[in-house]
C-alpha cells in the first residue's frame, strides 16, 4: 500500500470518528444542561474546552452560549466543526476511492452533502438533535460498511488505527471534563450540598451517554453511578469498545499486519502499561486531569510514530 494512501485512509477514519464524537458530545451536552439547575457552574464554555479549540472559538465568537457553540461545532468553516471534519473526511475519501469500497465512499459523500445542507439547523434545538443523530448513525453505518467490505489487510489496519486512536483521545477528553466539573461543583460554595450527589449522578450519566456507554456500564457495574466507577470503566474496561484501554489494545492487535511496526507497538504498550497501573480512586481524588494530560501526550507520541513509520518517507 502506498504511503500517501495509507495516510489518507488513516485521517479519513480519524475525521469520521471525530465528527461522530463531536456530534455525540453536542447532543449529550444539550440534554445535560436541561437537567442541571441554572446555578451550576457547568456551561457551554466547557464544551469548547473538550474540543481543544478555545482559542479559535474566542477569535470568532463573543459569548459562549448555546447558539454560538452549536454554530461553531456544527457548521463553522474552521477545522473543528462537524461539517469541516466531514469535508476533510470526504476529501481524503475522494483521494483514496480506488482502495475503498464504493458504498462507503458514497456514504461519506452523501453525509458530507448532508452536513453542508443542514448547517441551518444548528439554531433550532429539536432540528439539531435530529441532525446530530443522523450524523452519528451515518458514521456508524460507514464504519459498518468498511468493516463489512474491506479485506483485513493494511488498508483496514489504518482505518482501525485511525479510529481507535481518535476514540481513545476523545474519550479521555470527556473523562477529563467530567472530572474537572466534578471538582468545580464540589468546591462551589454556592451549590447546596444536598444536590451535589444528584448532580454528580447526572453529570457522569451524561459522560457515559455521550459514549453510548450507559447500558454497558450498568451491566458491568451494579451500583449507583459514581465518578470513580465511571472513570474506571471508560479508561480501564477491556471489553467496552469505547474504553481507552480497549482502543489501545485494538491498535496492538492490528499492528502485526503492518511492516516495521516495532516502534509503534512499543509506544502503545507503554501507554497501556501506564494506564493499567494507574489507580483510579486516587486519581479521582486528585491528579486526574494531570493523568489525562499525560495520556494525551502518549496518544500524540503514538500518532507521531505512525506517521514516521508509514507516511513520511516522501521527499
Amino acid at each position: 500500500m502506498l504511503s500517501r494512501v495509507a495516510e489518507r485512509i488513516y485521517w479519513q477514519a480519524r475525521y469520521l470518528e471525530r465528527a461522530e464524537n463531536t456530534a455525540r458530545l453536542l447532543n449529550v451536552f444539550s440534554n445535560l444542561l436541561l437537567d442541571l439547575p441554572d446555578r451550576t457552574t457547568l456551561g457551554w464554555s466547557d464544551l469548547v474546552r473538550i474540543t481543544g479549540a478555545s482559542e479559535t472559538f474566542a477569535q470568532h465568537y463573543q459569548a459562549a452560549n448555546e447558539t454560538n457553540l452549536a454554530r461553531f461545532l456544527i457548521s463553522d468553516p474552521c477545522n473543528v466543526s462537524i461539517s469541516a471534519m466531514l469535508a476533510n473526511a470526504r476529501e481524503n475519501a475522494r483521494t483514496t476511492r480506488e482502495v475503498m469500497p464504493t458504498e462507503a465512499f458514497e456514504g461519506i459523500n452523501e453525509l458530507h452533502y448532508y452536513a453542508q445542507s443542514a448547517a441551518g439547523k444548528a439554531d433550532d434545538r429539536s432540528a439539531r438533535n435530529e441532525m446530530l443523530e443522523h450524523i452519528i448513525e451515518s458514521c456508524q453505518q460507514i464504519f459498518g460498511m468498511l468493516a463489512g467490505a474491506m479485506s483485513r489487510d493494511a488498508g483496514y489496519a489504518f482505518v482501525r488505527m485511525g479510529r481507535a486512536l481518535e476514540r481513545a483521545d476523545m474519550v479521555s477528553r470527556m473523562v477529563d471534563v467530567g472530572a474537572r466539573k466534578l471538582f468545580a461543583m464540589l468546591e462551589d460554595p454556592a451549590a447546596p450540598p444536598e444536590f451535589a450527589e444528584t448532580w454528580q449522578g447526572i453529570l457522569w450519566m451524561s459522560v457515559l451517554r455521550s459514549q453510548s456507554a450507559y447500558q454497558m456500564y450498568r451491566q458491568h457495574v451494579r451500583r449507583r453511578i459514581n465518578g470513580e466507577d465511571v472513570v474506571c470503566f471508560l479508561l480501564h474496561n477491556e471489553e467496552f469498545p469505547r474504553a481507552v484501554i480497549h482502543n489501545l489494545t485494538t491498535i496492538s492487535k492490528v499492528l502485526p499486519r503492518l511492516p516495521n511496526h516495532g516502534e509503534v507497538a512499543e509506544l502503545v504498550n507503554l501507554a497501556r502499561i501506564e494506564l493499567k497501573h494507574s489507580h483510579v480512586p486516587e486519581l479521582v481524588e486528585r491528579g486526574l486531569p494531570e493523568r489525562i494530560d499525560h495520556l494525551q501526550i502518549h496518544f500524540a507520541a503514538i500518532h507521531d510514530a505512525i506517521s514516521r513509520t508509514w507516511f513520511l518517507p516522501r521527499t
Binding site: M1, L2, S3, R4, V5, A6, R97, E98, V99, M100, T102, A154, L258, P259, N260, T309, W310, P313, R314, T315
Partner: peptide, 28 residues
C-alpha cells in the same frame, strides 16, 4: 485504478533507482 485494482500514484509516490521504477509503500 479502483476498477482495475491498480495503484493510483502521483509523481511523488514514485522513485527511480538503478533505472527501475518503485513506489513508496508502507513497507518500503
Amino acid at each position: 485504478a479502483q476498477r482495475m485494482g491498480a495503484e493510483l500514484v502521483e509523481g511523488s509516490d514514485l522513485v527511480v533507482e538503478d533505472d527501475q521504477v518503485y513506489m513508496r509503500t508502507i513497507g518500503g
